[in-house]
């Protein structure tokens, strides 16, 4: 059983949804990011998404765009991110790590080299925003051989005709994008999201995580009632931005503020009991 599947089995056993946190690797610098990353499990993150910065993040709103620029400015390269995951993995064998980003940096690294190196570093899953099922045939076999799960995105626009195609070859869990929009902008109402999640569940037995627009412990709790996991990204990245000094470097309270926010979100998620 993969690390992701084991984690979702544990969560079912505990009768609750999981919290998935997103931070952009190398934001605002690699050392600060690694300190933040190392403390996420203890703060309450059940799975961790590590954003791979890209110069042209088409699906992201201002907060994650800015995080990516900060990371690139500090010299972050894909190989540095894999090395950071490797260091995390030596200290934590259980928390799944999912790299999330755009296809070009991966394609440029080389499909075979990337999947091999990522798996070796201890990456468990990949979310490649602009690699839809129509284009993933060149990538999926290498990822599967390396033991990496390709996590698919679904959207409010994914209908019954589209879902089987999206979910073919999907691994780990399904990441449902709650709004038709970009990250960190609007929030969906539970009443709107629930029927879509039910539709997705009719097409797959994979756990369903919901993200986009979830910012507060209350929103996390409300989402936890209908999802197997709740993803929070922009709200955490904004905390990074709010704790930079005048030169744009990490301020003294940055990591502590992030971990406190993650703890509050985790408490929100854990408020809601779910059937096993």
């Amino acid at each position: 059983m993969s690390r992701i599947s084991r984690r979702f089995a544990d969560l079912r056993e505990q009768g609750r949804a999981g919290l998935i946190t997103f931070l952009t690797a190398g934001d605002p610098d690699m050392a600060t990011f690694e300190t933040a990353l190392a403390g996420l499990p203890e703060a309450g993150a059940d799975l961790i998404e590590v954003g791979v910065p890209f110069s042209d993040p088409m699906a992201d709103g201002p907060a994650i765009q800015a995080a990516g620029l900060r990371a690139l400015k500090s010299g972050t390269k894909l190989r540095h991110i894999l090395a950071a995951v490797g260091r995390f993995r030596r200290a934590d064998e259980n928390t799944p790590i999912i790299l999330m980003g755009y296809y070009n940096p991966i394609f440029h690294y080389g499909i075979e080299a990337f999947t091999t190196d990522a798996a070796e570093a201890g990456v468990d899953g990949l979310i490649i925003v602009d690699l839809p099922p129509e284009e993933s045939d060149e990538f999926l076999p290498s990822a599967t051989r390396a033991g990496l799960e390709l996590i698919r995105l679904t959207a409010p626009t994914s209908d019954d005709a589209r879902l089987p195609k999206v979910l073919k070859g999907a691994g780990g869990f399904v990441y449902h994008v709650a709004i038709a929009g970009i990250t960190g902008t609007r929030s969906a109402s539970i009443a709107d999201v629930q029927p879509v999640v039910e539709r997705i569940r009719r097409h797959t037995n994979l756990p369903v995580a919901i993200g986009f627009g979830i910012r507060t412990p209350d929103q996390a709790a409300a989402t936890a009632a209908i999802a197997d996991a709740v993803v929070v990204g922009s709200a955490l990245v904004e905390t990074v931005a709010a704790n930079l000094n005048a030169e744009g470097k990490a301020g003294p309270g940055l990591v502590a503020a992030l971990h406190a926010q993650v703890a509050a979100l985790a408490a929100g998620v854990r408020r809601v009991a779910r059937g096993k």
Partner: peptide, 20 residues
């Protein structure tokens, strides 16, 4: 039919845009 000219072209977009 998938929009490829040899190795080029295609539809590399986020899932939200695919139906559009």
């Amino acid at each position: 039919e998938n929009g490829h000219f040899g190795a080029y072209g295609g539809r590399f977009v986020a899932e939200t845009l695919m139906p559009l």
